[in-house]
Design a protein around this nucleic acid. Structure first.
Lengths: 226, 226
DNA sequence: GTAGTAAAGTGTATTTTGCAACTAACTTAA
DNA sequence: TTAAGTTAGTTGCAAAATACACTTTACTAC
């Protein structure tokens, strides 16, 4: 039969979610005020224990925790990296499976309602985070920046339909890039068929109305030749 | 004070290493015959429990386990992804932090010595792996293929010094790519200063002797413009 | 020497990208 | 109702990057 696993071979396992969105043209992270020890009262990433009885895996933990603590539904989430060690949590040797979640701001504010103990903080103003959350946040922003350059990741910061100008602006924010050429950007997105036009136009302010687009689900990463 | 963590909030945590190398022009994975239950006698990835008393983090676990089970030293290793769930291990809800390790074949065979319960199996012949190790292996090969196209990852399958022909052949194997253009390949590697020439030439068979190169440590990922 | 072989370099056609100007569609207000 | 302002979307071309074929270099074996 199977060996019994001794208790000292078991570790605290949590999922921590870096929820990113765009506020006033800046990347912002959703931080939550911790209710319990350790670090009660401090702002931290949105996280929680794995519940072995109900979570199918840590992805489910992350999704559940994010839902429960923000009310958000239908967000984009992907696994980032795993952080571990004896010192990162004062309760002892622990493992945190970190996730990157992206959402359009309007959806998030709607989900949070009025009160809410979730604060949206510009990523470069999020200081004094407990545990190793500063490191996890840095990894999340790094992932968005690097993977954003060859995938449709930044589009997840926008509602399901968007204009090409909105998309380009979002890429620029997500990548921290100076400025992307308009025609190159459009050519690439349409040639690779990453997006498709949908019925409808939108007038933001004055000026010509813009065609609406949405992501095509099939492809999300650009090809790259060596 | 800190809350006590209830035992049902603790999980089995292991590190599993996908050790890849090139054997006869093919990617091969190092599989080890399991000594103990579950799945005793079966070939599996190289893995082991986190030892909270000696491991600084799961990276240390992976490095230690790979060293202990193969004798290998100075390999390349990076975190891949984390796999978890109630069913993947019959002992119960478990977490496996998976790692990708790369090594040149000669170093590995030297480390393994004569006996050794580590077998090198071509990646597409590795079937019937226990746990979710097939999935982990697929993720590792996928990472090498995708990240290899814009990084020096495949070079880790070669000894410290190598010729450009060897490097190109290794990229082709790692990427599973049809054929890379020689002049483009050389231009890119030298222009981006990913490699540097070292003293010495090598004659493999007949023909002109090839210049030896090594990786420049600083840069390992190519730039990418949108 | 001559043939064979692999490394390394060169020239050029082709493709991709960057830039800037231009046209289109709409709003506002004199 | 017309002119000015604003944003969307397109086009043409220069510049840069890449792919492909071919040439030269350096070595071995006969």
């Amino acid at each position: 039969m199977h060996q019994v696993v001794p208790p000292d071979h078991k570790q605290i396992v949590t999922a921590d979610v870096v929820l990113l969105t765009v506020v006033d043209g800046q990347l912002a992270v959703g931080l939550i005020r911790r209710e319990s020890e350790p670090f009660a009262g401090r702002s931290a990433l949105i996280g929680g224990y794995v519940h072995a009885d109900k979570d199918q895996d840590t992805d489910a933990t992350a999704t559940r925790v994010l839902r429960q603590k923000t009310g958000l539904e239908g967000f984009f989430i992907e696994q980032l990296s795993t952080f571990s060690g004896p010192k990162r949590d004062p309760r002892g040797w622990s493992v945190s499976v970190a996730y990157l979640a992206l959402t359009p701001l309007d959806r998030l504010t709607k989900a949070l309602g009025d009160g809410g103990n979730v604060a949206l903080t510009p990523v470069d103003e999020a200081r004094d985070l407990p545990f190793d959350h500063a490191q996890i946040l840095a990894a999340a922003v790094g992932r968005l920046r690097s993977k954003g350059a060859y995938s449709t990741l930044p589009a997840r910061l926008l509602p399901e339909t968007f204009t090409l100008s909105e998309l380009q602006a979002t890429y620029q924010i997500a990548l921290g890039a100076a400025r992307i050429d308009k025609s190159s950007f459009r050519r690439k997105l349409t040639e690779l068929a990453l997006i498709e036009a949908v019925e409808g136009l939108r007038a933001e302010t004055g000026g010509r109305q813009a065609q609406l687009y949405r992501l095509r689900q099939a492809i999300s990463v650009f090809e790259r030749r060596l």
